[in-house]
Computed example of a mutant assay.
Amino acid sequence: MNSAKIRIAIVRLSALGDIINTAVVLQIIRKYYPDAVIDWYVEEAFAPIINNHPLLNEVIAVPMKRIKKTKSVTLLRETIRNLRSRHPYHQIIDAQGLLKSAIVASMLPGKVHGFDRASAREGLAAWFYDTTSHIPYETSVIRRNVMIITEALDIPFSDTLIEQKTPVFSRGSDPYENKISLVIGASWPSKCYPKEHFATLCDLLPYPCYLIWGSEREYDDAQWIAQHSSNAHLAPKMSLSTLVSFIDHCALIIGNDTGPTHIAWAMNRPSITLFGPTTERMIYPTPINIGIKSPSEVDIFHINRNDFSINQIDPHLIAAKAKELL
């Protein structure tokens, strides 16, 4: 692709963890196209995680969930009109591979690139692309995110691009604190480590443990853990931007396979991710970012949401790994 200033659109609507694990591409694009104008199309609920990102020109919030919830024809028409009226792009990249993201990408003016039918999460999405890449679905999600964008932009891919990343989001200058964050929630109950095990784990760890919560149910679980462990404390209610800063200032993050846990990897902070019905495919392991998987076997093409094997991970094993990282 011509190295002159180009306009690039990234479509990655949701979920939070996917957005966090895709944002590393911004610094890679800037390395090869320093003058590029990069816009990011995101589900409006998750826009705050990348709003005001220094490497982005604009974050465009797409109200997909609100349209679905309200069934508002007026909002749908307004959204379609806004997408079609955007300035033409040299390259539009659907980094999600879902039918909804492909439809949004196809409404933008410009050539669209995405996963081919065999490697998209939803194969029908490939019908909306002008060009495609074949990147096996079983590939690490972070590698897939980087590869789809580097292939679209003719950037030579290597794992070094990922391994040598700088923190993905802006950070402050305060020193790290001797505290541990525990991310106790997740999108499915089967991805959640039991609160009883979290309480035991807190008692085994050498630093104060702060329980990150985001819903009423998670708040109730956090209160229970704090009542059953003298080393557990409730973290304050936080916005997404505040959450990034909070995690960035922890010595270690331990949590379920969910967005807030993935922030640790994005910010180059040590982390342990716990897996039951999912696998280490969801992270990019490094010497300071590791996963612990339950004994169950996982078919990534047919995830079993009733796999509660995460309950079988021993808190003593997690504590031992934590002390190694600390």
Score class of each variant (00 low, 15 high):
P287A: 10
G276T: 00
L56Q: 07
A118W: 15
I148Y: 13
T132S: 14
I283H: 09
P260F: 03
A319M: 02
E196D: 14
E44G: 08
L83A: 12
F46Y: 12
I212M: 11
P315N: 07
F275M: 00
K111V: 07
G185Q: 08
E122P: 12
R143M: 06
Q27W: 10
R77D: 06
E138C: 12
V104P: 09
S309R: 05
V244I: 14
P175Q: 02
R281K: 13
G114F: 12
V104T: 04
Y137P: 06
A199H: 05
I49S: 03
D248Q: 13
N2V: 01
N82H: 15
P175K: 03
I318V: 15
V59M: 12
A125S: 15
K321C: 02
S170C: 00
A152H: 07
L76N: 05
S158M: 06
Y33R: 06
G110W: 14
I103S: 09
T131W: 13
K323Q: 11
L13P: 02
V298K: 08
N268G: 03
C209M: 01
D248E: 15
K237C: 06
P194D: 08
T278H: 03
T132V: 14
L16D: 05
P48M: 05
F128G: 05
P88H: 10
W127H: 09
I225Q: 00
N306S: 06
I263L: 15
R86V: 03
F301A: 08
N304F: 03
I93P: 04
E196C: 01
I247T: 05
R30W: 04
A235F: 04
I92C: 08
N57H: 15
N21R: 15
C250P: 02
N82C: 11
D257R: 00
I288K: 12
G291D: 03
A47L: 05
I318D: 08
I283R: 09
S173H: 14
H90N: 14
A235C: 11
N145R: 06
L124I: 14
A320V: 02
G17Q: 09
I318E: 07
P54H: 14
A319W: 01
I254S: 04
V73S: 14
M64E: 03
A102T: 00
G276A: 01
I103K: 13
H316L: 12
I67A: 12
Y89P: 06
V59H: 13
Q27M: 08
W224Y: 12
N268E: 01
S14V: 00
I288T: 15
K321N: 04
P208C: 05
Y219G: 04
Y89M: 08
G17T: 01
K31A: 07
T258G: 15
R117C: 04
I103G: 06
V73L: 15
I20T: 10
L252T: 03
F169S: 01
S230R: 15
G17M: 04
F157L: 05
